[in-house]
Simulated assay, not measured.
Amino acid sequence: MSGDGATGDSPDEWEAVFWDIGGVILALDSVQGAHAEFVADLIERHDVEMTVEEAIDTWRTTVGDYFRERDGTEFRSARDGYHLGVEAIVGEEIPREEWQPRFDEIVRDSVEPISGAPQTIERLADRNLHVGVISDVDDAEGREMLEGFGVREHFDSITTSEEVGRTKPDPAMFETALEKAGVAPERSLMIGDRYDHDVRGAADMGMHGVAFGADDGPAVAYRIESPEEVLEIVDGTRDE
């Protein structure tokens, strides 16, 4: 099935596969676990009179409000949100150099990839097509995460919201990625876990949206249950 502004039938040959990071390459539950560990460590280090549960709730509310207050698809750095979260828990501003190294250490040691994603990316890199990232992440953190998962070298391009200054589904995100790749949108796949941001945003640009955990809707060209199924689409053994 093809989507809004979409492309109709699959092409005879694909030119590009683009990946979101969070929820597609990166297991989001591992991120939540890392943040919970950091918050527990934070209240212990600063002798904060909160339970871990209360501190985690404060963290999530503060960071969530920070992102909800942005103007449309305006980019907001996650690092700035985390800084506000630390301040809300401790009750005073803590210099970044005091909390960030520990945060980075915990995240680096705790986050995990989606099962099968690194292997699929490596196998795609052996094919004659462009393999890219389109993700609403801080640029350095996104690249470091891909490096940690051992897949950074397999990507031909990485397009982040920090670089573009907007977040998906802003057309600028997809336009920038397609321009870097030099590929036709109708010969491109976009794998995402959010319908409005990833799948419909891509379909509105003429790309084929691949839903991995995303809601159903007319913009879904393909639905997959595991990253490995992308190989079937690319190889032409999977119908729409």
Rank of each mutant, 00 (worst) to 15 (best):
D235T: 06
I89L: 05
G91F: 01
A172W: 02
R223E: 15
Q119I: 03
T176K: 12
E186C: 03
R68L: 12
A16I: 02
E228N: 04
R123Q: 14
F103R: 01
G132K: 00
F174E: 04
G64A: 14
V230L: 02
P218V: 08
D12F: 04
I89R: 01
D20W: 04
P227E: 07
E93A: 14
Y82I: 15
F174I: 05
A34P: 11
F18I: 05
G22K: 12
I21E: 05
I89N: 01
G132R: 01
H130M: 01
A172C: 06
A219F: 01
D235Y: 00
V90P: 01
F67I: 08
D9Y: 04
G5Q: 10
S77I: 04
D198L: 13
E54H: 04
K168G: 11
W59Y: 15
E147W: 06
R70A: 14
S226G: 07
P11D: 08
S30Q: 10
N128V: 00
F103E: 10
A36N: 14
I106T: 03
V137M: 12
L124C: 07
T73R: 05
P118Q: 11
R127F: 02
G8H: 08
D216Y: 05
T58A: 15
R70Q: 06
R60V: 13
F212I: 06
T7M: 15
A211W: 02
G132N: 03
K168C: 11
E175R: 14
E163T: 11
S10I: 10
D198I: 08
L42F: 00
R45D: 00
R127D: 10
W14M: 05
T160Q: 05
V48D: 00
G165V: 13
V137C: 03
R76Q: 13
V183E: 06
S157C: 09
A117T: 11
A34Q: 12
H35S: 14
W19A: 01
R143A: 10
F149M: 11
I56S: 01
A184G: 11
